[in-house]
Design a binder for these strands. Structure first.
Lengths: 351, 351
DNA sequence: GCTAACGCATAAAACGATTTATGACAATGG
DNA sequence: CCATTGTCATAAATCGTTTTATGCGTTAGC
């Protein structure tokens, strides 16, 4: 006996009832098992039956109920994206939003391409937020060192891909990242080539791999080139103001540098502006470069040389990798995305 | 007979089995019905029983399986966000990303506060993309005129809140928006007050309410003030370049304006830069203002006066409104979010 | 003392798919 | 002619909830 006679009394309500697998089965006079098997390419069915089912399903616009499918099969076809650096101590941080949105946008599109939808999970560090029944896998952007969210997910056996890695546990998850070391050296080489003698490095304070690796690379580069490393650390949240503040403190004093490399674009923007207000000419008196290509770098005057981390590529590759792991059981562990050094007027050759 | 003896043989697999409603029921020796009723605040249960259930659920960390709940109750506890202006003709547009990300970020956080999660739905205009079984409601940012996605959703009886409204059907959905008319007039008043005689208006080409209303407001303002309206329309995708291009075409020619109001921040940034390259001083020779507070406005030199549309507020209010409609059956139709005029050096009084 | 009402809890039927185990029938082999 | 094998399809169990309809004692009403 069929479980329900399919639609005699059609509800008049506003929300139209979508066709179910039973409707397809009934229309063809086959069982729901057959329909499911045909649509999922499983079981042993004659090619002819399979085609008939597929055609009929398309005709009446049948799409499996996502919740029903998720419940039974344990696959939600949802990927979760957690932007760690966006949320800190529970409060929303509107800065740094440029990079985030590019990653999220690209990730969302890529997910769709691979048959997933992307869910935003602002990471509140509260247990329960990472419920594995919601998503088939997680992308975590800029995990912090010893990230608790990552730890819980991994412990629960949920596939995770990080963008950048947890500095305390590089091997715990698959990851996608730039080659931050070579990017850093490339920038420093450029600054040196353009006449930078005393190059100061300004880093952020978040304990993520981008900050870590870049800082280490700067130190070793300085050592190799017989220069004394000078590193400052500015909180990312400080933004443009923090950069300006630092400039006030070190420019025009004894030991004032002739070149600055700020990892954070906003810091670079603020630093540059303050220097100009103090009467310096960029690039004549001071070379300046930024470690990410934020709007502040592009739109400063003069525009600031910057590293384009390829936010879109990072987002896309992270999702691709995650999809490969989930769908194909890939054991790939990491992908390196190439960063692009964009030379602008702030490091132009001095005439 | 209980449906299943709860966990004797614990699977050794990696993915830990989460406790179900049956586990809670068994631990207390009550029925699953009781547990469900207690947890959802329904039915007639003694206060004592209710509390015992709640306590036990908390103790073992029970959280309802989202898919099971979604299937049975028809509520997914998911809100979908579609950024119409981000996707056009199937290709991802990285520009305009600043506003998008702020809206999305704020929306995601607000959704969590109201017990929802936010799903990103890049709107490909393909039927099926808007499957109402995925989300309890939709937020649609900057719908186009006669937006097909909006139409399908409304036809299916899905709750929709738009940010800005569909110019062809303002009453079809609930919406959240700035008061674009008063914002426009405020900017124009400022420009006039600072000595702008010949004020040109530069609009975008997307058929959304922001563009529509602002343009109309400019026209009526001009009429009221006895000035001849001059409107240019630049594609949003053109970005900074388009703005610069336009400046080349109209500045320094006969009828060259002494003030410009570009709706799009990127257009304003490009326009300003090109003017300076042509030897003009801002604000002495030309006043300039932008209709949204993009990075390009903030970081130009001099910084450009701009309208802060309050992206975070728009995202937050849209979700709040949608949640009120879904959760409380609210019949509220619209909320107006106040925009902030931010005066900067580009419209400073001329000495 | 009998019925009605009430308070509290539950059994069982959905929701819409996937998966497992099984069956019907035709063809093949000895 | 019976047993074996293979092909194709299906019935029924299951995933974990919510909801509907029902039951069982106890108290109240007359």
């Amino acid at each position: 006996m069929p479980r329900r006679t399919p639609v005699k009394i059609d509800r008049e309500g506003s929300a139209a009832r979508r066709p179910t697998i039973h409707d397809v089965a009934a229309a063809l006079g086959v069982s729901v098992t057959t329909v499911s098997l045909a649509l999922n390419g499983k079981g042993t069915l004659s090619e002819q039956t399979r085609e008939r089912v597929i055609a009929e399903a398309a005709r009446i616009g049948y799409v499996a109920h996502p919740m029903a499918r998720g419940l039974r099969a344990g696959r939600t076809h949802v990927l979760a994206l957690s932007i760690r650096s966006l949320d800190f101590g529970g409060s929303y941080r509107p800065d740094g939003v440029d990079h985030f949105s590019r990653v999220a946008g690209a990730a969302a599109f890529t997910a769709l391409d691979r048959g997933f939808r992307l869910m935003l999970v602002p990471s509140s560090d509260e247990p329960g937020d990472e419920d594995p029944r919601w998503a088939d896998g997680y992308v975590i952007e800029d995990p912090r060192s010893n990230d608790p969210l990552v730890a819980r997910l991994v412990a629960n056996g949920v596939p995770v891909v990080t963008i950048g890695w947890d500095p305390a546990h590089k091997t715990r998850t698959a990851w996608v990242s730039n080659d931050d070391q070579s990017a850093t050296r490339q920038v420093l080489d450029l600054l040196a080539e353009r006449g930078g003698r005393d190059i100061v490095f300004v880093s952020g304070t978040e304990p993520n791999s981008w900050n870590d690796v870049s800082r280490k690379s700067y130190r070793s580069w300085a050592r190799e080139h017989g220069r004394t490393p000078r590193v400052y650390r500015l909180p990312e949240e400080g933004g443009v103001e923090a950069g300006a503040q630092l400039a006030s403190e070190i420019i025009g004093r004894p030991g004032s540098p002739d070149a600055v490399y700020c990892q954070t674009g906003r810091h670079a923007g603020g630093f540059a502006r303050r220097c100009q207000e103090m009467g310096l000419d960029i690039p004549r008196d001071l070379l300046i470069a930024a470690g990410n290509d934020a709007e502040q770098a592009r739109n400063s005057n003069p525009p600031i040389t910057a590293v384009d981390l390829g936010a879109e590529t990072l987002g896309r590759e992270a999702v691709e990798l995650l999809a490969d792991i989930i769908l194909e059981g890939s054991t790939e562990r990491s992908r390196v995305v190439s960063a692009q050094l964009i030379e602008r007027a702030s490091t132009a050759a001095r005439r």
